[in-house]
Design a protein around this nucleic acid. Structure first.
Lengths: 230, 230
DNA sequence: CCGACATCTTGACGACTGTCAAGACAAACT
DNA sequence: AGTTTGTCTTGACAGTCGTCAAGATGTCGG
């Protein structure tokens, strides 16, 4: 599930990866170099995601990304051929940790009521914990309507999100002993609409009302899920 | 409902508004000037909306807007104090013709089945006819999460859209003799999610599949509406 | 007809962007 | 050791952006 390489470690200063004595091992060292290269890419992607989540796709420049990373603005073109490649790499990087968000709940819940409650609560929690990332996702999904370069990766991830929701609903249906009432796409579209609606309130509303919006979402989803079954 | 002034008439060359003989009438002429000023603002807003719908908020520059209008790029700052003011003016201008889109159907439908069918069909039709405008709306709504200057107008219009949908659903409930099952916000959020989902497919999918996406939306909404009633 | 005014064009400004080349620096190899 | 190689910084480039000022053009009141 998670990549074999250790996580890039946010902002950790250069870890030279202790070489085994001074023995010459060309293949191992080449592999280590490649691995470090990948780590740097991930590290840059993480920095970029933070900035992108804060400023949005349109107002995020490569210099701004570099300024919130341990590097200078020139490095980006050493690890990525263009801004576009960095962005799409970021989206895919983000997806890796995102499309399995509810799988633990699906696997460990033992009754339909438990799954329903925990899923509804998790929806609110992920807005609270990763709000800017979700803002970024909706931003990029919309930009894909104007920017063809984003379409492939966006449609790919949107499909995976739909599957993620469908895993929740089918398991819920299984536990409840009733089949789903709607097809995967419709189910996803409806829930996604409620999620996006709450995210907008959460992001734009006054700080004091943020938690209100989240608990409203939880309540709505909690009471809506049963009617998604036949 | 509609403004008293005649529509700005897309790209019509200067209409000097025939002055009544050569009689001096300061107050009338001042009014005519003010009216012409407003017409120019609307005209610029229309040009801007076309460009915004095509390129999206991020990639639309004032020069690009002016290039697709009968004016040069300097005029914008004669009629608007800043880009930001132009954009928000555009959004409000667009709203005027938008939030009453289904009212005719609500008023003229005589049975729940008719209202349901016509509403579902109209949803698809407005994507087909005004796709870029809807793309722009979702773009701006998202940008409002990053750009505080957009929040007020976006939340305002979003509320009006919710009311628009609620007028449809309450009338539908009335004709069907059953009360709505959900609150206005939840109803709007769900339907908006399905709408946005279809718009994304319509805008990014291959041209050959556009109509498919629209008919799928029609079918979904048509079969979903009954379950929105208790 | 002339002066006053509204309107519009043109050209410039400083700031910012993505991209890239030249070089600094250090680690690794022979 | 010296030299190659990978990594990163710096500075510059061409272009675009919003904004504004100066002036051309047109319109109207007297």
């Amino acid at each position: 599930m998670m990549p074999a390489r250790p996580p890039p470690g946010a902002y950790a200063v250069v870890v030279p990866a202790p070489r085994s004595a001074s023995v010459a091992d060309p293949v191992a060292s080449a592999a280590a170099r490649a691995s470090k290269h990948e780590d740097r890419r991930d590290q840059l992607a993480e920095s970029a995601l933070v900035t992108l989540g804060k400023l949005g796709y349109a107002k995020t420049s490569l210099r701004e990304i570099a300024q919130h990373s341990p590097f200078s603005h020139g490095v980006v073109h050493y690890y990525f051929s263009s801004k576009e490649e960095l962005i799409t790499y970021c989206v895919r990087y983000y997806k890796r940790t995102c499309v399995t968000r509810y799988d633990a709940i699906v696997a460990s819940s033992t009754s339909d009521d438990e799954l329903r409650t925990r899923f509804a609560a998790k929806l609110a929690e992920t807005i609270r914990e990763e709000g800017p990332m979700h803002q970024l996702w909706y931003d990029l999904r919309n930009q894909s309507m104007f920017e063809p370069a984003l379409r492939e990766v966006v449609l790919d991830i949107d499909g995976q999100l739909e599957e993620m929701i469908w895993r929740v609903v089918t398991r819920y249906a299984e536990l409840a002993g009733r089949p789903p009432a709607l097809d995967p796409a419709t189910t996803y579209g409806m829930l996604d609409g409620l999620f996006a609606q709450t995210l907008l309130l959460w992001a734009t509303g006054p700080a004091g009302r943020r938690e209100d919006a989240l608990s409203v979402l939880t309540g709505r989803v909690d009471s809506l899920l049963p009617s998604l079954l036949a």
